[in-house]
Simulated assay, not measured.
Amino acid sequence: MDKEQLLAELHFKAVRSSGPGGQHANKTATKVELSFEVDASEGLSEEEKARIHKRLSNRITKEGMLKMQCEESRSQHTNRELVTESFLKEIQDALKKKKVRKKTKPTKASKIIRLKQKKQKSEIKANRKNPLK
């Protein structure tokens, strides 16, 4: 993954933010929408693109565009920085390889302890029974 190449391929669009804010919010475009074309990216290898498609399939459109948005701040510049940070974090998380689980066997001591506890439990239950029947 080439971080600088990815940042160069990002497209930003400023839109009017929703919610309260009065006059300022009604006339300024502070919400920032980020779009990134995964398939056309030169900063990712084919394997990385496939992994991103698999992990972020719910965020990628039919055209292969990854879209994100931010309207936390009243500043367009701050929102642009925030959405860029979250984009890079999402991509890095999607590219992480999951740790392979190695099967382990229970130790001999743990088997003995388990069987002892099982025996004790069955004796307790056996003692609850009515001895006359």
Score class of each variant (00 low, 15 high):
Gln120Cys: 04
Lys62Trp: 05
Asn58Gln: 05
Thr30Phe: 01
Lys118Val: 11
Lys108Ile: 07
Lys67Arg: 11
Thr78Met: 13
Lys99Cys: 02
Ala40Met: 06
Pro131Ile: 10
Leu88Thr: 00
Glu4Gln: 15
Arg16Thr: 13
Ser41Pro: 00
Thr78Gly: 02
Leu34Lys: 02
Ile112Gln: 11
Leu6Val: 08
Lys125Phe: 09
Lys62Val: 05
Val100Gln: 06
Leu95Val: 06
Glu48Asn: 01
Lys67Gln: 12
Lys27Leu: 11
Leu115Lys: 15
Ala109Gln: 10
Glu9Trp: 11
Val32Cys: 01
Lys116Asp: 15
Glu71Gly: 04
Lys108Gln: 06
Lys133Leu: 15
Leu7Asn: 11
Ser35Trp: 01
Lys125Gly: 08
Ser73Phe: 04
Gln120Thr: 14
Lys118Phe: 13
Glu85Leu: 08
Ile91His: 00
Lys96Arg: 05
Met1Phe: 06
Met65Glu: 07
Ala109His: 05
Thr104Val: 09
Leu66Arg: 02
Lys67Asp: 03
Ala109Tyr: 07
Leu115Ala: 15
Asn58Gly: 04
Leu34Val: 00
Gln117Cys: 13
Lys103Ser: 08
Lys125Asn: 15
Phe12Asn: 11
Leu95Arg: 04
Lys13Gln: 14
Glu123Trp: 13
Phe12Arg: 12
Asp93Leu: 08
Ser75Arg: 04
Met1Leu: 11
Lys111Pro: 04
Ala40Val: 04
Lys102Asn: 12
Lys119Asp: 14
Glu123Phe: 14
Leu10Met: 15
Ile113Tyr: 09
Glu85Trp: 05
Glu71Cys: 06
Leu115Asn: 15
Ala94Cys: 02
Gln5Ser: 12
Arg101Val: 08
Leu6Asp: 09
Gln23Ser: 08
Ala94Asp: 02
Arg74Cys: 08
Lys27Val: 13
Ser41Met: 04
Arg101Thr: 03
Asp39Phe: 00
